[in-house]
């Protein structure tokens, strides 16, 4: 799952979530806080983890929970890639726990930097489960 949130994306996301924190749109302020520029919101990282989990669960599946920890900032214009593996399967419920990571690729390619690490639990109700990049 990939996404490239630019400055416009961040402004739209901030507006609709009532997030006026200047580190997300004010470059000078973000730099005064030791950042390289406007940073991606934690909640947007969470949305990307949710989307990756939902893609794995398929149309008839369901995301039961999602969690993430921020490890390093991601910036407007970064290519963000969420990848994951199946960590465990609950034998009783069949619920699948996914271990997820998000990396940022400032120049689009390269080795990438870990931004977030987390997990999701999904219920897969048919053979919809997709392989996750």
């Amino acid at each position: 799952m990939e996404y490239v949130p630019d400055e416009i994306t961040l402004l739209r996301f901030g507006a609709v979530t009532r997030n006026a924190h200047r580190i997300h749109y004010d470059t000078a302020f973000a730099r005064s806080e030791g950042l390289d520029g406007p940073v991606v919101m934690a909640q947007l990282h969470g949305c990307l983890f949710h989307r990756a989990a939902a893609a794995y669960a398929g149309e008839t599946g369901e995301v039961l929970s999602v969690g993430w920890q921020n490890r390093a900032p991601a910036y407007a214009g970064d290519r963000l890639v969420v990848s994951g593996v199946v960590e465990s399967v609950d034998e009783e419920t069949g619920h699948i726990t996914l271990a997820l990571e998000e990396h940022r690729f400032p120049d689009g390619e390269g080795p990438g930097t870990l931004c977030c690490r987390g997990h999701a639990v999904v219920a897969v109700r048919s053979s919809d489960a997709q392989s996750s990049k």
Binding site: R18, A20, H21, F29, A42, S65, G67, G118
Partner: peptide
């Protein structure tokens, strides 16, 4: 810094830097 004053408990009116650390959502 643009944050709502009680978004982060205990920080209203203090010149401290705030960052989100992550969430666990059920």
């Amino acid at each position: 810094d643009g944050m709502y004053r009680d978004e982060v408990p205990g920080t209203d009116g203090l010149d401290v830097r705030l960052m989100a650390g992550g969430q666990d959502v059920r």
